[in-house]
């Protein structure tokens, strides 16, 4: 390990930060690739919210760990196995339905998590959660609207969304495989799972999308830095400059 994460609170923060960062990087890939100009601009707003959120979380992480590392060190100087984002958010932008489905599944989850973090003993995290929840409420409204547009719109859009949901649902059980770190900081995880399932089932039903079965597995997960192959490529591109010119500052 190049940069170790030493406390449970830091482990919680790094999971949150990495998840928001990697999703932001995926949304950055959509820049100039939106289905029309307005949506392009909207996706950039979403990515900027996520980047800002990730930056605040990394700053808090750096402060908590007290190793004289900056937020950027956590972003640019860790390897694949030292990232702790959920596998869901590293999945590629296969088409616009994937972008929307991934965002929606993330937003529902993030809303529940940050709502619980409002009660955090750490006042900075509680304060940040309040700000973040406003962003998520807007993002969730938009991603849900698009779920309905694609699900109800045309036969093709329905099929594409169904395919994206089928593929992405494989990564949902991981979200709920809470370990002792999560349980220490996130209250009422049972309730969280219930909330998530109710919200998602309801949307999928309205959008005429078949809800795939959630299969719990016993595989190692992102909490141990275990990922899909997509993450490494994303990181090698994202980290290129600081890695290629380690002495430079930007």
């Amino acid at each position: 390990m190049v940069i170790s994460i030493d406390t449970n609170f830091a482990r919680l923060l790094v999971r949150l930060a990495d998840t928001e960062l990697i999703l932001a990087q995926r949304l950055c890939e959509m820049c100039s690739r939106g289905p029309f100009l307005e949506e392009d601009i909207a996706l950039s707003n979403l990515a900027l919210d996520l980047l800002g959120r990730a930056e605040e979380l990394y700053k808090l992480l750096a402060e908590t760990e007290g190793k004289e590392l900056a937020a950027d060190d956590y972003v640019y100087r860790r390897n694949e196995r030292e990232f702790f984002c959920y596998k869901l958010v590293e999945q590629p932008n296969t088409d616009f339905a994937w972008v929307i489905a991934r965002q929606y599944l993330h937003d529902v989850y993030a809303k529940s998590v940050f709502t619980r973090l409002l009660q955090s003993d750490n006042s900075k995290l509680a304060g940040l959660s309040e700000k973040v929840l406003k962003e998520i409420r807007y993002s969730l409204e938009r991603s849900k609207d698009w779920m309905l547009r694609l699900g109800i719109g045309t036969e093709e859009s329905n099929h594409r969304l169904q395919f994206a949901i089928d593929r992405l649902f494989r990564f949902v059980p991981e979200l709920f495989a809470f370990d002792t770190v999560d349980l220490q900081y996130i209250a009422d995880t049972e309730g969280l799972i219930e909330e998530w399932k109710m919200e998602v089932s309801d949307t999928l039903r309205t959008a005429n999308i078949q809800e795939p079965e959630l299969k719990s597995t016993h595989l190692r997960d992102s909490r141990e830095g275990f990922h899909t192959e997509y993450l490494g490529h994303l990181l090698s591109e994202m980290q290129f400059l600081p890695r290629a010119y380690p002495d430079a500052t930007w």
Partner: peptide, 24 residues
């Protein structure tokens, strides 16, 4: 995607987004 810091990535994205907005 290769912006070398979180700050520069946000600045660049905000700028590119502005170009899109101005096109609009």
């Amino acid at each position: 995607l290769r912006a070398p810091s979180l700050r520069s990535k946000q600045v660049l994205l905000a700028k590119i987004q502005d170009e899109g907005g101005h096109g609009l």
